[in-house]
Every structure is written in C-alpha cells, then in structure tokens.
C-alpha cells in the first residue's frame, strides 16, 4: 500500500507531521536548519521576545524518571537582533518555519508579531503559556481565557500571517481557552506547553533548577497532552498541533487520533537523538501499514468515534 505521510496545517503542506518544538535546539538559525536536515517536517524556533533576555542561571534542565523539568527563562537576543537568524532558517531549512513569540504585555506580543511578519513566515506560534516567566509577568496568559483572547486579538490586528495559539495544560477546562482564542482569531492551536513541577536535591535541601520551579516535559506529560488535544478537538474546528512527550511513532499517532494534524517534538531529542524526527516518521508509517491507513488525514480524530 502507498502511504502518504504528508500533512496539511491550513494550506501549508508538511512532508511529514513531525515539527521541532519551540525552545529545544532552535536557538539559532543554524540550529533550526540542523534539526530540519535530521528529518523535521517543519521548525518552530526558540520563542522571541521584544528585547534581549538572559534567562535563568543554570541548572535550567533536570531529569526525573519519566521526563525533564526546564526553567530556561526565555533567553533570546530580542526580536530585532534575531530577524537574521529566522531569515537564515527560512532560507536554508527546506521546510516551513513558524517563528514563536512571547511578550510581557499584550502590546509586546503585538510588537514582536509585527516585526516577525516583515519576514513573511507561513505561520507564527504565539507562546501564551510559558510558565517560566511568571515572576516578571505574573500569571501566564494561557491560564486565563480572557487574557489569552486579548493577546490573540492584538496580534491579529498587527499581522496578516496566520497564527497558532500555544496553550497550557494547567487550567480547569482547556476547551474554554480553546474557544476563546479561536473566537479572537487564532487560526490554529498547539497544545501543550509544559506543566509546573519541581525536583529537590535532598543533599543540599534545595530545588535543583536555579528558578526552583520548572515545566515538566517528556513522557510524563504525554497522557495529559493527548487528553488536552482530545478535548480541544471536541471544542473547536481549527487545526491542532499536538505537543508533549512524543518520542515514538506510536506517541505521534495517539496525538493524531486524538485530533491533531501534526506533532511537535522537543524532549524526544534527548531520548532518541537529533534524528528523532526521521525515526518517529518511519514508525508512524509502520503503524499505518499495519492498520490499513494510507494518509494522515484518515487518522485525524479517529479516536473520537
């Protein structure tokens, strides 16, 4: 049987449904291209903000038995210094690049979106949900559907580029947030960002991460994320990108059957290497073969029947 592993988000074709997740690897244009050459179907670079930020001191990542915690603190050289990096990635990756952005205020989200749009990317991902900046920004925008919707509205007023709203899992009802951002104009949703967590070192009686708290990623996050995608698929009609703990083709197919049309992979790079994208895609093909699916589209939301 001929199996087609390509997928579509809005009208954008991806040669395979694995996307590099924001904040993992994609710090520079060159790093994005490197991941693309290892098989990613699209790239989301590290989130960019309005001005330079150093992020937190080390340790910024710590492992536990089923995943990682990170509190990198959104280091970036500021959108104006970074346009060249994004341009390099767009020119050389050979796959679509969806720049990710954040702001401390809704106006800042608008500003960064406007600057990035000058490069004409195919989509922008709006990081409404990074838990690591709470100390300077207060509650993450994605935790409050009104705040999230307001950000989306402002971003939409500043750009013609389609936007993906990236949501957080730690809300009472993610369907409400999904509906609010779609009503405000989000063209797609990606879910999820990390969950708050902590690891304490008992020999020094203090949390390992310099920021103390961090975000849980990797396998521990997966069932939470699959459930979020399932819920969002019930609530809205826009394309969904599933994120959280994808390390195998089976993980990716779970997300797709829950309602996603593509997946992002971050922490999976640790477990499977930088060519995780190629491995996951090959494993998806095997699962599709075994179950008689010839395209990704046939599997999207299949678990809802």
């Amino acid at each position: 049987m001929q199996i087609d592993l390509s997928t579509k988000i809005l009208n954008i074709r991806l040669s395979n449904p694995t996307i590099l997740a924001s904040g993992v690897m994609g710090v520079s244009g060159a790093a994005c291209v490197y991941a693309a050459k290892k098989g990613a179907g699209a790239i989301v670079p590290k989130s960019l903000g309005p001005k330079e930020r150093e992020g937190h001191a080390n340790p910024v990542l710590v492992e536990f038995d089923k995943g990682f915690l990170n509190a990198v603190g959104l280091p970036n050289s500021g959108v104006d210094n970074s346009l060249g990096e994004i341009e390099f990635a767009m020119k050389n990756a050979g796959v679509p690049v969806f720049p990710s952005l954040f702001g401390g205020t809704k106006e800042e989200f608008g500003y960064v979106a406007e600057r990035l749009s000058t490069l004409n990317p195919q989509m922008l991902e709006i990081n409404l949900s990074c838990p690591n900046t709470a100390s300077d920004f207060g509650e993450a925008f994605a935790l409050n559907e009104k705040a999230a919707a307001e950000v989306i509205r402002i971003v939409k007023s500043k750009t013609k580029v389609p936007i993906i709203a990236k949501l957080a899992p730690n809300v009472p009802d993610i369907k409400k947030v999904a509906r609010a951002v779609v009503e405000a104009g989000a063209d797609a949703i990606s879910a999820i960002n990390t969950m708050p967590g902590m690891v304490i070192n008992v020999d020094v009686a203090r949390p390992v991460l310099h920021n103390r708290q961090g975000g849980v990623s990797g396998p521990a996050l997966k069932p939470v994320a699959v459930n979020c995608v399932y819920e969002i698929h019930k609530a809205v009609k826009v394309p969904i990108i599933g994120i959280g703990g994808v390390t195998t083709g089976e993980d990716a197919v779970e997300f797709i059957m829950a309602g996603a049309c593509a997946v992002e992979i971050g922490t999976g790079i640790y477990y499977r290497g930088i060519d995780v994208f190629r491995k996951v895609t090959a494993e998806m093909e095997e699962i599709m073969q075994r179950n008689g699916y010839s395209s990704i589209k046939e599997m999207v939301g299949a678990a809802h029947k």
Binding site: M25, G26, S28, A30, Y34, K46, L61, N70, V72, G266
Partner: peptide
C-alpha cells in the same frame, strides 16, 4: 546550558552542530 544536547544554546554557525 544543558550540556547534553537538548537546549541548542551551544550550536555553531553555520552548520548547527
């Protein structure tokens, strides 16, 4: 930052390793 190949901070231009 991480030291084990995940964060991408140490990637070099233009080959990205």
């Amino acid at each position: 930052k991480c030291g084990f190949g995940l964060c991408g901070h140490c990637c070099v231009d233009p080959i990205g390793i």
